[in-house]
Simulated scan of single mutants.
Amino acid sequence: MLLIIFLVLILLLVQVMLPGRYLTEQVGSEVQIGPRDDLPEPTRELARSQRALANLQETLPVFLTLAILSIVLGEQGWLSLAGGAVYFLARAGHVICYMRGLSPWRSICFLLGVLGALAMAIPLVPHIWS
């Protein structure tokens, strides 16, 4: 599970860097390193990268909580690991689909990520009553 956590965090790092890359491309590095008070409307790529990052940040706390609980509670069986892998692959697919404007694939990737997180939660359910 630890490897999957690291992979998801690397994905987060990549997604955090994307808006900065597109902003620098749009306004130049001198404006980008300044206070950025009067920025122009974002380009399509910049806006998409910002929304994709915000979307990942909405689901990341749930994933990390489930992943850490599975480690702490010793529930790193096949269902937890498969769910974590599905979450990671779906989130990687989600950012690709988001950046390329691929509908309905973006929504399908989002749903697969949610299903991956649910799969991670199933082995944890018995611990609620213990």
Rank of each mutant, 00 (worst) to 15 (best):
M1H: 11
L2E: 15
L2A: 15
L2D: 15
L3D: 07
I4F: 03
F6W: 15
V8C: 10
I10L: 15
I10D: 11
L11G: 03
L11D: 04
L11H: 05
L12R: 09
L12E: 10
L13Q: 12
L13K: 10
V14E: 15
V14C: 15
V16K: 03
M17S: 13
L18H: 09
L18W: 11
Y22A: 04
L23T: 02
E25L: 14
Q26K: 10
V27Q: 04
G28T: 10
G28N: 08
S29A: 07
S29D: 05
E30N: 06
Q32M: 13
Q32R: 10
Q32P: 02
I33W: 05
G34L: 11
P35F: 11
R36D: 13
D38P: 05
D38S: 11
D38W: 06
D38M: 08
D38R: 07
L39N: 05
L39E: 08
P40N: 13
E41C: 06
P42E: 15
T43E: 05
T43D: 04
E45K: 13
L46Y: 05
A47M: 15
R48E: 14
Q50L: 14
R51P: 03
R51F: 11
A52Y: 09
A52W: 07
L53G: 04
A54H: 11
Q57S: 14
L60K: 12
L60R: 12
P61K: 11
P61Q: 14
F63D: 02
L64A: 10
L66C: 01
L66W: 00
A67W: 00
A67D: 00
I68T: 06
S70E: 04
L73C: 07
L73V: 08
E75H: 05
E75C: 05
E75S: 05
Q76P: 02
S80T: 12
S80V: 04
S80L: 01
S80H: 02
L81I: 09
G83L: 02
G83A: 04
G84E: 00
G84R: 00
A85C: 08
Y87S: 01
F88A: 00
L89V: 12
R91W: 04
A92V: 09
A92S: 03
G93W: 08
H94Q: 15
H94F: 14
V95C: 11
V95L: 12
Y98W: 15
Y98S: 02
M99I: 14
G101P: 06
G101R: 07
L102K: 03
L102G: 01
S103D: 13
S103T: 13
S103V: 13
S103W: 13
I108F: 04
I108L: 10
I108Q: 00
C109N: 03
C109S: 08
L111S: 14
G113L: 02
G113I: 01
V114Y: 05
G116L: 01
A117R: 01
L118D: 01
L118I: 09
A119D: 03
A119L: 09
I122L: 13
P123G: 02
P123K: 00
P123C: 06
V125C: 05
V125M: 09
P126R: 04
H127A: 13
W129E: 11
